[in-house]
Design a protein around this nucleic acid. Sequence first.
DNA 1: GTGAAAGCGCTAACAC
DNA 2: GTGTTAGCGCTTTCAC
Lengths: 348, 348
Amino acid sequence: MTRPTIKDVARRAGVSTTSVSRFLNAKTSNMRLHIRRRIARAIKELDYKPDSRARSLRGLATQIIGVIVPTTSNPFCEELARAIENVCYKEGYCILVCNSQHSTERECRYLDVLQQQRVDGIVLVSSRVDGIVSVSSGIDPEKLNEVVKKGIPIVLTDEDVLGAKVPGVFAKNRIGAAEMTQYLIDIGHKTIAFVTGPSNSLPAQQRLEGVLETLQKNGLHPPNEKIIKKGDYSFEKGYRLTKELLRESAREFTAIFCLNDFMALGAMRAIQEEGADVPNDYSVVGFDNMYFASISNPPLTTVTQPIKEMAAKIFELIKEFNPRKMKRNDYFLDTKLVIRNSCKSLNI
Amino acid sequence: MTRPTIKDVARRAGVSTTSVSRFLNAKTSNMRLHIRRRIARAIKELDYKPDSRARSLRGLATQIIGVIVPTTSNPFCEELARAIENVCYKEGYCILVCNSQHSTERECRYLDVLQQQRVDGIVLVSSRVDGIVSVSSGIDPEKLNEVVKKGIPIVLTDEDVLGAKVPGVFAKNRIGAAEMTQYLIDIGHKTIAFVTGPSNSLPAQQRLEGVLETLQKNGLHPPNEKIIKKGDYSFEKGYRLTKELLRESAREFTAIFCLNDFMALGAMRAIQEEGADVPNDYSVVGFDNMYFASISNPPLTTVTQPIKEMAAKIFELIKEFNPRKMKRNDYFLDTKLVIRNSCKSLNI
DNA sequence: GTGAAAGCGCTAACAC
DNA sequence: GTGTTAGCGCTTTCAC
């Protein structure tokens, strides 16, 4: 019933706890074989598992990384969290998954909890939702700086927090969106409707920049305000805004570019519900390349975020963390256009 | 840079660490007001966060619950994990999310890791996938019994592990499937195709029992073997098996009952790809009522698993855990039929 | 009402 | 090569 400790192992093996500790930490080069064997046996017989709290109290890592995301119900966040979990698993770490549920308050509470748990690092996808009534400006960057000063590395990803002196790992949102826009133009779409992300979301802004820039480069007018709708990355919003688009200005565009896949799925659904066809009546494209984009009907043309690479870079940054020289230091990883069947070429 | 400890707080407040500790643990009834105030101020000024590792080493809870699921890429598991996270959050706990990735080996490794982290409890959705080549019989129940003996509560959910002396929280799978079958029969479907779960999955077995029982009760023959396909809960499998069904025996059934939603989504996709219509040509139903079932096209008729109630019960069981009287003790929670638009009535 | 001191399980100087 | 011992940050008994 009572858990065995290092003392129990030492006693059973007839050695000191130091030797057991050395064995556990693989500092075993100068250790006599028969002692090693005795320790190994004792550990096995007792089914001894070293207490990682006690170890970390003595200065070792907790082997826990905290991951704060707006919500794993968004498949992109879920995939990101899972990718991080996967690199952690390989390195012997595990992750505390924290859904802030788009609440800055909850994000802060979790930040506290993770500090108390003395995690070895925090990965933060900050949430900055602007609702109808109030615009949550998101977390105070000073809060993050405080945490870092206390020696816990933070890495930002997907969503940025301006003013925070911590590194970030992002997709090349502007370029990805530009490539997608160019693709739509190349296949003959001259008037494109857009469903953007929240206006205070940085990746959303960058994607929009990429769009406008490409439009201009191709000598096209920036789209009429009526066909740029402000979304919030949710399926429902994509659905509802597309219905609006269809109601208000059905003939003014031939393609819809939703700035994330989840909304693009909603857009396709809205179009189909109105009896129109994707891609024959409207082309629809997204951004993220989450799993569901590949199994939607039709499969969605989109932009891949390099989730695995992002996860690997994030882990690397956490391990390299040096508290005395923490600074802004951003990494932008390549996206890739994924062409599936949600677009129709208008060229003759 | 260096994290403040309880000593720093004590020094700054001009009191002993004992008093600070008492304050932290709300054992404050007999404490003089001005001392309380001084401590509160010192904590605030230093932005002190008690080290939960040190606290738990002295016998308090770690406030961490481990959750092992096959994979959060299955939306049902993701929703379950999130529901658990949510009750934990409210109670000041957080969760270590572990994707076993359908690997019994990884499941075991995580079980070890969670023990080392001295989590206050483990929630396990065991994986028992039978692949094409080998049937993984799943984790050894004795492993679980060992963990429990060491004082860490385990609660099983969704998937059972026979022989493990730990409590379980499940949906009423048999009854839920029976109700769904009855519904299909009531709206005129006499020949129903089935896509089941893995044959060593207990909920899959129970759902199938509910199906066969209801068929019999209504004087219907058990379905031809050709229209019972063994799936694995994945979208792809639902998709592929439905294609098979359509190719081999298109006219022998009017409805498909997939034993989870993810496969039902795959089934709908396969049907639509073949140019047929849901629900006009085939009715399709699922089981789980995951979020995507409500936004599919058409929205899927399915059976709700009472995820929130399950999460609450699981947490309760972990808190009530008494190591000396751990036993099988199962809780079955009510499901509910959710009728949407993926079925057509054949009655005139 | 408050504090001194022991000890949770472990690691790492330091000694031999 | 291996053991003795102090101490990580905290809680809790026991004294005052």
